[in-house]
Amino acid sequence: MSENQEETEGEVIQENAGEVVQEKKVICVICPNSCEITVKQMPDGTLLMEGQGCKRGEQYASDEFLAPKRTLATTVRIHDAFIPLLPVRTSVPVSKEKLNEILDLLARIEVTAPITCGDVIVENVLGLEANVIATRTLGVDTCTKIACELPA
């Protein structure tokens, strides 16, 4: 790795009981300040933070440490529209660990026009309490939800 590479997140340090169990550096993305927050987890589960600039940053760093989430945006195949792909996204951020599974599922899905922007393409995807919704209207005459077909 070149010395010019930016530092990536995450160094896990095991220390003895009573001291820091796990430590992670998080770059906050809530506002342009981009505070570098160091999050330390204690044996009793509490989190100590250094470097945050505000409460929102604290919340973000805590989420990033315990359960990082991301909004996934991709496409699914669509028939009978003037283009072959429909853009979609998760309605809310979902667990970062689950992104690949969702992507694989969506790579195998096909829908048919007309689709209205906002239509639910996959409800409660992988039980994560997030829907996958269409982010574009393609070939719509009436606003009806279309069930998608999942190949076996």
């Binding site: 010019n4 930016e6 770059i27 342009p32």
Partner: peptide, 23 residues
Amino acid sequence: PSGLVRNKVQCLDDYGIPLYLSH
């Protein structure tokens, strides 16, 4: 980096994609 920090974090760091500055 010439883009937003948020993109560097969520597009590169998240996926271990190295950024070579001054290259």
